[in-house]
Amino acid sequence: MPSTNPSSNDPVTLRIPSGGNLVASTVEARRKAAMEALAAPCAEAVLDLAEAEVVDSLGITLILGLFKTCQQRKIGFRVEGANADLMRVFKLFSLPKLFPIVER
C-alpha cells in the first residue's frame, strides 16, 4: 500500500512512492493513494519510481494526472528514481519538458 511520507528534512515535500510497477492492475489503487496523500498540505510532490521497473500507458496517464493535480494546486512536481528504460519512454513522450525527471 503506498503511503505519503513527508521528507524528514523538508516538511513541505510530499514523497509518493510508486509501491511497485505502475501498470493497469495497480494504477487505480495508486491513484486513490496519491489522492489521499495530496490531501496534506505541501509545496512540492515527488513521485518515487525506485520500486517501479515497468510503467505502462495507464501508468503514464496516472503520472500526468498527478502532475496536472499538482499544477492545479500550484505545487511543484517531479519524478525521481526512473530506470533507463523508463527514461527513454518519458523522453519519447517529452515528459521532461513538463516536469523534472531524475534518473535512478
Partner: peptide, 27 residues
C-alpha cells in the same frame, strides 16, 4: 527517427478522472 513529441496534458482533469482519459501522444 522521433524528432519531437508531446502529450495533450490539458485534456486531463487531474487525478480524479485521469484514468478515464485516452490521451493522445503526438509524434
Amino acid at each position: 527517427t522521433c524528432l519531437d513529441a508531446f502529450i495533450d496534458v490539458e485534456a486531463i482533469a487531474g487525478l480524479e478522472s485521469c484514468l478515464e482519459e485516452d490521451l493522445p501522444v503526438t509524434l
